[in-house]
Protein backbone atom coordinates (compact mmCIF):
# COMPACT_ATOMS: atom_id res chain seq x y z
CA UNK A 1 0.00 0.00 0.00
CA UNK A 2 2.79 2.32 0.94
CA UNK A 3 4.59 1.45 -2.25
CA UNK A 4 1.46 2.10 -4.24
CA UNK A 5 0.94 5.45 -2.59
CA UNK A 6 4.50 6.44 -3.33
CA UNK A 7 4.16 5.28 -6.91
CA UNK A 8 1.00 7.24 -7.37
CA UNK A 9 2.55 10.32 -5.84
CA UNK A 10 5.73 9.95 -7.83
CA UNK A 11 4.14 9.35 -11.18
CA UNK A 12 1.55 12.02 -10.57
CA UNK A 13 4.27 14.60 -10.16
CA UNK A 14 6.04 13.72 -13.37
CA UNK A 15 3.36 12.77 -15.75
CA UNK A 16 2.09 14.75 -18.64
CA UNK A 17 -0.20 14.38 -21.59
CA UNK A 18 2.85 14.87 -23.78
CA UNK A 19 4.13 17.64 -25.99
CA UNK A 20 3.84 21.31 -25.22
CA UNK A 21 2.48 24.54 -26.54
CA UNK A 22 5.22 26.91 -27.55
CA UNK A 23 5.76 30.43 -28.73
CA UNK A 24 8.62 31.43 -30.93
CA UNK A 25 9.94 34.24 -33.04
CA UNK A 26 10.19 34.19 -36.78
CA UNK A 27 12.47 36.03 -39.10
CA UNK A 28 13.05 36.18 -42.82
CA UNK A 29 16.07 37.09 -44.83
CA UNK A 30 17.96 36.43 -47.96
CA UNK A 31 19.39 32.95 -48.10
CA UNK A 32 22.84 32.92 -46.49
CA UNK A 33 24.45 31.10 -49.40
CA UNK A 34 23.30 33.86 -51.69
CA UNK A 35 26.21 36.09 -50.80
CA UNK A 36 23.90 39.06 -50.72
CA UNK A 37 24.99 42.27 -49.09
CA UNK A 38 22.49 44.63 -47.63
CA UNK A 39 21.84 47.52 -50.00
CA UNK A 40 23.80 45.96 -52.82
CA UNK A 41 22.46 44.43 -56.02
CA UNK A 42 22.63 40.69 -56.42
CA UNK A 43 24.02 39.17 -59.57
CA UNK A 44 23.68 35.56 -60.68
CA UNK A 45 23.25 33.43 -63.77
CA UNK A 46 20.10 31.43 -64.32
CA UNK A 47 20.03 27.83 -65.60
CA UNK A 48 18.77 29.25 -68.88
CA UNK A 49 21.97 31.24 -69.19
CA UNK A 50 20.69 34.69 -68.36
CA UNK A 51 22.91 36.92 -66.31
CA UNK A 52 20.65 38.68 -63.89
CA UNK A 53 21.31 41.56 -61.59
CA UNK A 54 18.61 42.21 -59.07
CA UNK A 55 18.29 45.60 -57.46
CA UNK A 56 14.96 44.91 -55.79
CA UNK A 57 13.48 41.64 -54.66
CA UNK A 58 10.69 41.90 -52.13
CA UNK A 59 8.22 39.20 -51.25
CA UNK A 60 5.16 39.70 -49.14
CA UNK A 61 4.77 36.81 -46.73
CA UNK A 62 1.40 37.11 -45.11
CA UNK A 63 1.71 34.12 -42.86
CA UNK A 64 3.59 30.94 -42.22
CA UNK A 65 1.90 27.72 -41.20
CA UNK A 66 3.66 24.54 -40.22
CA UNK A 67 2.14 21.11 -40.49
CA UNK A 68 2.57 17.52 -39.42
CA UNK A 69 1.86 16.37 -42.97
CA UNK A 70 4.78 15.03 -44.94
CA UNK A 71 5.51 17.14 -48.05
CA UNK A 72 5.10 14.15 -50.33
CA UNK A 73 1.59 13.39 -49.18
CA UNK A 74 0.59 17.00 -48.82
CA UNK A 75 1.18 17.68 -52.46
CA UNK A 76 -0.16 14.42 -53.77
CA UNK A 77 -3.84 15.14 -53.71
CA UNK A 78 -4.74 17.63 -56.36
CA UNK A 79 -7.99 18.33 -54.60
CA UNK A 80 -6.45 18.77 -51.18
CA UNK A 81 -8.08 21.73 -49.50
CA UNK A 82 -6.04 24.81 -48.86
CA UNK A 83 -6.61 24.57 -45.12
CA UNK A 84 -6.61 21.21 -43.42
CA UNK A 85 -7.69 21.46 -39.79
CA UNK A 86 -6.00 19.47 -37.13
CA UNK A 87 -2.53 19.21 -38.58
CA UNK A 88 -1.02 22.61 -37.87
CA UNK A 89 1.98 22.67 -35.57
CA UNK A 90 2.81 26.33 -35.80
CA UNK A 91 1.74 29.62 -37.26
CA UNK A 92 3.07 33.11 -37.78
CA UNK A 93 0.09 35.26 -38.59
CA UNK A 94 1.60 38.59 -39.41
CA UNK A 95 2.66 39.99 -42.72
CA UNK A 96 6.21 40.88 -43.58
CA UNK A 97 7.56 42.23 -46.82
CA UNK A 98 10.82 40.36 -46.97
CA UNK A 99 13.75 42.05 -48.60
CA UNK A 100 15.18 39.02 -50.34
CA UNK A 101 18.44 40.79 -50.99
CA UNK A 102 19.09 41.50 -47.33
CA UNK A 103 20.84 38.79 -45.35
CA UNK A 104 19.92 40.49 -42.07
CA UNK A 105 17.13 38.66 -40.23
CA UNK A 106 13.95 40.64 -40.59
CA UNK A 107 11.51 39.80 -37.78
CA UNK A 108 7.89 39.07 -38.42
CA UNK A 109 5.71 41.50 -36.52
CA UNK A 110 3.94 38.87 -34.46
CA UNK A 111 5.00 36.06 -32.23
CA UNK A 112 4.70 32.59 -33.61
CA UNK A 113 2.51 30.08 -31.78
CA UNK A 114 2.40 26.35 -32.01
CA UNK A 115 3.31 23.09 -30.41
CA UNK A 116 6.29 20.80 -30.29
CA UNK A 117 4.62 18.16 -32.39
CA UNK A 118 6.95 17.10 -35.19
CA UNK A 119 6.75 19.51 -38.08
CA UNK A 120 7.17 18.04 -41.52
CA UNK A 121 6.14 20.77 -43.91
CA UNK A 122 5.34 24.44 -44.13
CA UNK A 123 3.02 26.71 -46.05
CA UNK A 124 3.78 30.24 -47.02
CA UNK A 125 0.79 32.47 -47.57
CA UNK A 126 1.22 35.17 -50.16
CA UNK A 127 -1.67 37.29 -49.06
CA UNK A 128 -2.53 39.97 -46.58
CA UNK A 129 -6.22 39.16 -46.50
CA UNK A 130 -8.68 36.36 -46.72
CA UNK A 131 -7.03 33.58 -48.59
CA UNK A 132 -10.32 32.78 -50.32
CA UNK A 133 -11.20 36.35 -51.27
CA UNK A 134 -11.81 36.69 -54.96
CA UNK A 135 -9.71 39.83 -55.17
CA UNK A 136 -6.69 40.99 -53.27
CA UNK A 137 -4.66 44.12 -53.93
CA UNK A 138 -1.55 43.33 -51.94
CA UNK A 139 1.60 43.25 -54.02
CA UNK A 140 3.25 39.98 -53.14
CA UNK A 141 6.31 40.26 -55.33
CA UNK A 142 8.29 43.25 -56.46
CA UNK A 143 11.46 42.73 -58.43
CA UNK A 144 13.60 45.03 -60.48
CA UNK A 145 16.85 44.47 -62.30
CA UNK A 146 18.41 43.62 -65.54
CA UNK A 147 18.95 40.44 -67.41
CA UNK A 148 21.32 39.88 -70.26
CA UNK A 149 22.34 37.12 -72.54
CA UNK A 150 24.48 37.20 -75.62
CA UNK A 151 24.67 40.96 -75.52
CA UNK A 152 21.00 41.54 -75.20
CA UNK A 153 19.89 43.37 -72.10
CA UNK A 154 16.44 43.32 -70.58
CA UNK A 155 15.89 45.86 -67.85
CA UNK A 156 12.83 44.46 -66.15
CA UNK A 157 10.34 45.03 -63.44
CA UNK A 158 7.62 42.94 -61.94
CA UNK A 159 4.84 43.61 -59.51
CA UNK A 160 2.55 40.69 -58.78
CA UNK A 161 -0.75 40.52 -57.05
CA UNK A 162 -2.84 37.42 -56.60
CA UNK A 163 -6.40 38.45 -57.13
CA UNK A 164 -8.87 38.12 -59.91
CA UNK A 165 -5.92 38.38 -62.25
CA UNK A 166 -4.84 34.94 -61.17
CA UNK A 167 -8.11 33.09 -61.27
CA UNK A 168 -7.80 29.79 -63.04
CA UNK A 169 -10.90 28.19 -64.48
CA UNK A 170 -11.92 24.87 -63.01
CA UNK A 171 -10.61 21.92 -64.93
CA UNK A 172 -14.03 20.30 -64.86
CA UNK A 173 -17.39 22.07 -64.73
CA UNK A 174 -18.52 19.47 -62.23
CA UNK A 175 -15.64 20.47 -60.01
CA UNK A 176 -16.10 24.22 -59.76
CA UNK A 177 -13.64 24.53 -56.92
CA UNK A 178 -10.95 22.38 -58.42
CA UNK A 179 -8.72 25.41 -58.88
CA UNK A 180 -9.56 27.70 -56.00
CA UNK A 181 -7.84 31.04 -55.75
CA UNK A 182 -6.38 30.03 -52.40
CA UNK A 183 -4.18 27.53 -54.19
CA UNK A 184 -2.55 30.40 -56.04
CA UNK A 185 -1.82 32.21 -52.81
CA UNK A 186 -0.33 29.39 -50.81
CA UNK A 187 3.11 28.02 -51.42
CA UNK A 188 3.01 24.49 -50.13
CA UNK A 189 4.32 22.06 -49.15
CA UNK A 190 7.73 23.38 -48.29
CA UNK A 191 9.81 20.72 -46.63
CA UNK A 192 10.47 21.67 -43.03
CA UNK A 193 11.59 18.88 -40.76
CA UNK A 194 11.76 20.43 -37.33
CA UNK A 195 10.43 20.50 -33.83
CA UNK A 196 9.44 23.85 -32.48
CA UNK A 197 10.40 24.73 -28.96
CA UNK A 198 9.63 27.49 -26.57
CA UNK A 199 11.65 30.57 -27.41
CA UNK A 200 13.03 29.16 -30.63
CA UNK A 201 13.54 31.18 -33.77
CA UNK A 202 12.21 30.07 -37.11
CA UNK A 203 14.18 31.49 -39.98
CA UNK A 204 12.76 31.78 -43.46
CA UNK A 205 15.42 32.07 -46.11
CA UNK A 206 14.41 33.42 -49.47
CA UNK A 207 16.50 32.77 -52.52
CA UNK A 208 15.30 35.08 -55.31
CA UNK A 209 17.50 33.34 -57.82
CA UNK A 210 15.04 30.48 -57.84
CA UNK A 211 12.26 32.80 -58.94
CA UNK A 212 14.02 33.23 -62.26
CA UNK A 213 15.22 29.70 -62.81
CA UNK A 214 12.89 29.03 -65.72
CA UNK A 215 12.33 32.53 -66.96
CA UNK A 216 13.03 33.25 -70.59
CA UNK A 217 13.53 36.98 -70.50
CA UNK A 218 13.31 37.11 -74.25
CA UNK A 219 9.56 36.70 -74.05
CA UNK A 220 9.08 39.70 -71.84
CA UNK A 221 6.75 42.45 -72.87
CA UNK A 222 8.57 45.68 -73.52
CA UNK A 223 6.73 48.61 -72.01
CA UNK A 224 9.25 51.35 -72.72
CA UNK A 225 12.06 51.92 -75.16
CA UNK A 226 13.59 55.02 -73.67
CA UNK A 227 14.80 54.03 -71.33
CA UNK A 228 14.24 50.43 -72.27
CA UNK A 229 12.08 48.56 -69.79
CA UNK A 230 10.51 45.16 -69.84
CA UNK A 231 7.71 44.10 -67.57
CA UNK A 232 6.34 40.84 -66.28
CA UNK A 233 2.60 40.86 -66.89
CA UNK A 234 0.56 40.48 -63.76
CA UNK A 235 -2.11 38.17 -65.02
CA UNK A 236 -2.51 34.61 -65.98
CA UNK A 237 -4.80 34.89 -68.97
CA UNK A 238 -2.41 36.73 -71.26
CA UNK A 239 0.80 35.55 -69.78
CA UNK A 240 3.88 34.81 -71.84
CA UNK A 241 6.45 32.25 -70.82
CA UNK A 242 8.41 34.71 -68.71
CA UNK A 243 5.31 35.87 -66.85
CA UNK A 244 4.20 32.38 -66.04
CA UNK A 245 7.68 31.20 -65.18
CA UNK A 246 8.26 33.97 -62.68
CA UNK A 247 4.88 33.48 -61.08
CA UNK A 248 5.50 29.77 -60.85
CA UNK A 249 8.95 30.48 -59.49
CA UNK A 250 7.42 32.64 -56.80
CA UNK A 251 5.12 29.79 -55.87
CA UNK A 252 7.62 26.96 -56.14
CA UNK A 253 7.71 24.86 -53.00
CA UNK A 254 11.36 23.97 -53.42
CA UNK A 255 14.10 26.31 -54.37
CA UNK A 256 13.11 29.81 -53.34
CA UNK A 257 12.25 29.06 -49.72
CA UNK A 258 13.99 27.23 -46.95
CA UNK A 259 13.15 27.12 -43.28
CA UNK A 260 15.34 26.43 -40.30
CA UNK A 261 14.73 26.51 -36.61
CA UNK A 262 17.31 27.55 -34.06
CA UNK A 263 17.11 27.76 -30.31
Amino acid sequence: MKRLALAVLFTGCLDTTGNALVSFTATASAAPDLGAVQGQPLSFTTPRGFDVTLTTARVWVGALYFSTVEPTTASGATEAPCVVPGVTTGEVRGGLEVDALDPTPQPFPVEGLGSDLPTRSASLWLTAGDVNASDERTVVLRVEGTASRAGTVWPFTASFRIGTNRVTPPRNPALPSSNPICEQRIVTPIGFDATLSQGATVQLFVDPRAFFASVNFATLEQVSTSPPLFRFRDETATADQADTALFNGLRANSGPYRLEVSR
Binding site: P81, N132, A133, P170, A174, L175, P176, S177, S178, C182
Partner: peptide
Protein backbone atom coordinates in the same frame (compact mmCIF):
# COMPACT_ATOMS: atom_id res chain seq x y z
CA UNK B 1 -16.44 24.66 -30.49
CA UNK B 2 -14.23 25.81 -33.34
CA UNK B 3 -15.78 28.87 -34.99
CA UNK B 4 -14.68 28.83 -38.62
CA UNK B 5 -12.29 26.00 -39.08
CA UNK B 6 -13.76 22.74 -40.23
CA UNK B 7 -15.64 23.68 -43.39
CA UNK B 8 -13.27 22.09 -45.85
CA UNK B 9 -13.66 23.18 -49.46
CA UNK B 10 -14.45 20.23 -51.71
CA UNK B 11 -13.70 20.44 -55.40
CA UNK B 12 -17.28 19.62 -56.36
CA UNK B 13 -18.67 22.44 -54.25
CA UNK B 14 -19.09 26.03 -55.20
CA UNK B 15 -16.17 28.09 -53.99
CA UNK B 16 -16.74 29.05 -50.41
CA UNK B 17 -14.84 30.25 -47.45
Amino acid sequence: FTGFLNDVQLARQSPHG
